[in-house]
């Protein structure tokens, strides 16, 4: 028994709907292009950060991408967590604590791979602890991760001895030579390892989102937790894993940051959670869960970093908080207004 064609057509029926769908999927590339165009038109050579005027000048792009490495590393995992309907406000402190651990290990003679590996494990543990609080103790994610935000920051501050603000060369210990090559030295196309690791992580997460059980189950958990559980999905395990992955990404971000700055600063991740929220909002991730793409968040991170750095050269640094706050509110409002999910009353 065949059914009438028009009303039962597959996916977006009308032309208008198709255009809307296209816009929703690709708007971010337009935004990125627009940002690049605007910044390249600006005359930037008055400012220190840029060597020559044009934004598109190679060295400037390299600088921007080097500095962006932490946020780029974090964006993907944070997105997947939000897709599952959960949030992690402690990423900044995880980053700071990982930075300190990494620097401590390095300055005490631990070789690169070992220090790298250990720090990643620490990050996983910190993330897993978040998962424990949320899944096992059933503390609401906002409060649970605010608790760990404070706790991890405290741990990081304690690891740095009094009187010093960060782990760095001095007092008889010297930071090894290899320390900042990870975050500074160009290995491919002039870009450092930290950037390429960020790219690699993003690629892995994009594949995971599209092709793995974790990606699919994350969307199910965020989209309709009841349906997910009824299908036999262990939503607690999924969420726990996602928190762990966020922890590892935050640790990688911390390594990138401390390598770039050549020191382990416990406060180096402060405000990262706000950047991450901004990034995922721009990338079209919904707070209620189910919606969100890793790749779009990556682009969103590029946009944010380009704007931030570009802005730093145009206006004094003290405008930054205001702009981020305004951007956050604007992004939240537009995100919500074009959100697909209708909220129940």
């Amino acid at each position: 028994m065949m059914s009438p064609s028009s009303t039962l057509a597959h996916s977006a029926a009308t032309r208008a709907e198709q255009i809307a769908q296209f816009l929703r999927n690709y708007y971010i590339y337009f935004v990125l292009a627009a940002v690049v165009v605007v910044l390249s038109l600006a005359n930037l050579d008055r400012f220190d950060l840029f060597e020559r005027g044009n934004f598109l000048y190679e060295r400037n792009i390299i600088n921007i991408l080097r500095v962006s490495a932490p946020l780029l590393t974090l964006a993907g995992a944070f997105t997947l967590l939000m897709v599952s309907g959960y949030i992690d406000l402690s990423v900044g402190s995880t980053m700071g604590l990982s930075a300190v651990v990494y620097a401590l290990l390095a300055i005490n003679g631990v070789p690169f791979l070992a220090a790298f590996g250990i720090t990643m494990v620490v990050g996983a543990g910190l993330g897993a602890f978040n998962g424990l609080l949320v899944v096992r103790f059933k503390i609401t994610p906002v409060i649970a991760t605010l608790i760990t935000l404070s706790f991890y920051k405290g741990l990081a501050l304690l690891l740095v001895q009094d009187g010093v603000s960060a782990i760095k060369s001095g007092g008889g210990l010297k930071m090894p030579e290899w320390f900042n090559s990870y975050g500074r030295e160009g290995v491919l196309l002039g870009l450092p390892m930290s950037f390429w690791i960020a790219v690699a992580v993003t690629v892995v997460l994009v594949i995971a989102q599209n092709r793995s059980l974790l990606g699919k189950y994350a969307a199910a958990t965020g989209g309709n937790p009841t349906a997910a559980k009824l299908s036999g999905i262990n939503t607690g395990k999924i969420v726990f894993l996602l928190y762990g992955i966020v922890g590892v990404s935050a640790a990688l971000a911390g390594i990138a940051r401390s390598s770039f700055m050549s020191l382990g600063d416990p406060l180096s991740g402060d405000g990262m959670e706000l950047n991450a929220i901004l990034v995922v909002l721009i990338g079209g991730t919904a707070f209620s869960g189910g919606e969100g793409r890793v790749l779009r968040s990556f682009i969103g991170a590029l946009i944010i970093m380009a704007l931030t750095i570009g802005m730093l050269t145009i206006v004094p640094a003290y405008f930054q908080t205001l702009v981020i706050g305004a951007a956050l509110l604007t992004a939240a409002a537009s995100n919500h207004l074009i959100s697909r999910k209708e909220s129940a009353s």
Binding site: F287, L322, G325, A326, L329, A333
Partner: peptide, 19 residues
């Protein structure tokens, strides 16, 4: 706009301090 209050007030906090 029915946006979660945690996000809104984080944003307005930054807005206020930013000003």
């Amino acid at each position: 706009f029915r946006i979660p209050s945690i996000i809104v007030t984080l944003g307005t906090m930054m807005l206020a301090r930013g000003i």
